[in-house]
């Protein structure tokens, strides 16, 4: 079966995100005063095949830990759907 995993990677709360800060400042200067904290991360789409969702999720989890995110500085989450 074909699946698609959608992986979201964002800087950990304790890590300063200067890009996010710059975007936040720009949103404020455009008049969006309601904007609080902005964090800039990555969206990664992975197409893959597998026998079932549980097995695919375990594989994606491993990919996140080994490569897609650096847990020293980043948090990740993902969802998996049949393609």
């Amino acid at each position: 079966m074909d699946f698609v995993a959608r992986v979201y990677v964002v800087p950990k709360p304790a890590i300063l995100d200067p890009q996010g800060k710059a975007v936040e400042t720009s949103l404020h200067s455009l008049g969006y005063e309601e904007v609080g904290d902005v964090r800039l991360g990555k969206y990664i789409e992975v197409k893959l095949s597998g026998d079932g969702a549980a097995g695919v999720e375990a594989r994606v989890e491993e990919m996140c830990r080994r490569l897609l995110a650096n847990e020293v500085i980043e948090d990740y989450r993902f969802d998996v759907e049949t393609a």
């Binding site: 890590i15 300063l16 200067p18 890009q19 650096n70 020293v72």
Partner: peptide
Amino acid sequence: LCEAGLLPGALVQNRGL
């Protein structure tokens, strides 16, 4: 070396961008 786990910590974008 940090990514490889041979050294502790990580390097991110300069604070002043």
